[in-house]
């Protein structure tokens, strides 16, 4: 924020070239994310079979190009379920969970951040204490403990993943709302008699939204990694439902005999988190460089 270095003002030809490459990479990342979104939306039309339909005559069938047939273009798994169909549905489930969880985390974190900034005093201290606690424990371990004892339903699972990362939003919102409270426009609106909720929702939120959106983009890959990690361990999304991590987890028993079961979902997870990270970094550089 403070340093405007010479090459930013007068780009050399080399930095120009690097930017050009970066823009191409961002373009590809956005295209990939668009593709994933389309697959998620039209998953049931794309899938040639029901994702849970068994085909015991064609177990562990190889994909097209490795000696397989068009019947199962991406191959089939140990129960003869079509990998393409499962992949499409898994992308839908994983993205749905990630969006739901991000929304929960953002709403919770922003609310707590605003409460801390508004009330200050002991309310703020308690919220800051919770942030410290959350940041000091590896969330995967907490999540495993909770899952063990609440049992595992999809709703609980999404809520639990939503709890991951709320502290980022809370921290950012608190800091931004506190500095906004000092700004003339907020003081003016308050002097005019606006209620606190109106000040925060109508006046402060639009001004800090861009930073919060960047935070959300930066937090999104973590959410996908957490969901797929838990599902990989067999403690996340439960069969018969399927998710990307789930496919990798169950596919690893057939790593040598049928690697196609886990290669595609692994690739999808990696490329998706990579694309979101690239887009997030790019957005951060454009909108708010102070975020980390």
């Amino acid at each position: 924020m403070s340093s405007i270095s010479a090459e930013k003002v007068l780009p050399s030809s080399r930095t120009h070239r690097l930017w050009w490459w970066r823009d191409r990479a961002i373009g590809i990342a956005v295209a990939w994310l668009g593709l994933m979104l389309l697959v998620a939306i039209f998953a049931d039309r794309l899938a040639p079979y029901d994702y849970a339909a068994l085909d015991l005559h064609h177990r562990l069938a190889a994909p097209l190009g490795l000696g397989g047939t068009i019947a199962h273009p991406f191959g089939s798994d140990e129960l003869g379920r079509d990998v393409l169909s499962r992949l499409a549905i898994s992308i839908r489930i994983s993205l749905l969970i990630a969006f739901g969880a991000t929304l929960i985390g953002a709403v919770l974190g922003i609310t707590l951040g605003i409460l801390a900034a508004h009330f200050r005093g002991w309310v703020e201290q308690i919220i800051l204490g919770c942030i410290d606690f959350q940041a000091s424990m590896p969330f995967l371990v907490l999540a495993l403990a909770v899952l063990a004892f609440f049992g595992n339903s999809l709703l609980l699972f999404v809520g639990l993943i939503g709890l991951h990362g709320w502290e980022r939003y809370a921290r950012v919102t608190r800091a931004l709302a506190m500095s906004a409270n000092e700004h003339a426009y907020v003081i003016a609106v308050r002097q005019l008699g606006a209620r606190p909720w109106r000040v925060y929702l109508r006046h402060i939120m639009p001004n800090i939204a861009s930073t919060l959106i960047v935070t959300m983009t930066l937090a999104f890959p973590d959410i996908i990694l957490l969901e797929s990690g838990l599902s990989f361990l067999g403690l996340g999304v439960q069969p018969p439902l399927t998710s990307l991590g789930n496919m990798v987890g169950y596919g690893r028993d057939y790593l040598t005999r049928a690697p196609w079961i886990l290669v595609l979902p692994s690739l999808v997870i990696s490329l998706t988190t990579l694309s979101i990270s690239l887009v997030g970094d790019w957005l951060r550089d454009r909108i708010d460089k102070t975020l980390s």
């Binding site: 890959p221 988190t273 990579l274």
Partner: peptide, 8 residues
């Protein structure tokens, strides 16, 4: 390195 999940 940090977007590829460790299990992958």
């Amino acid at each position: 390195g940090f977007t590829v999940p460790s299990f992958v």
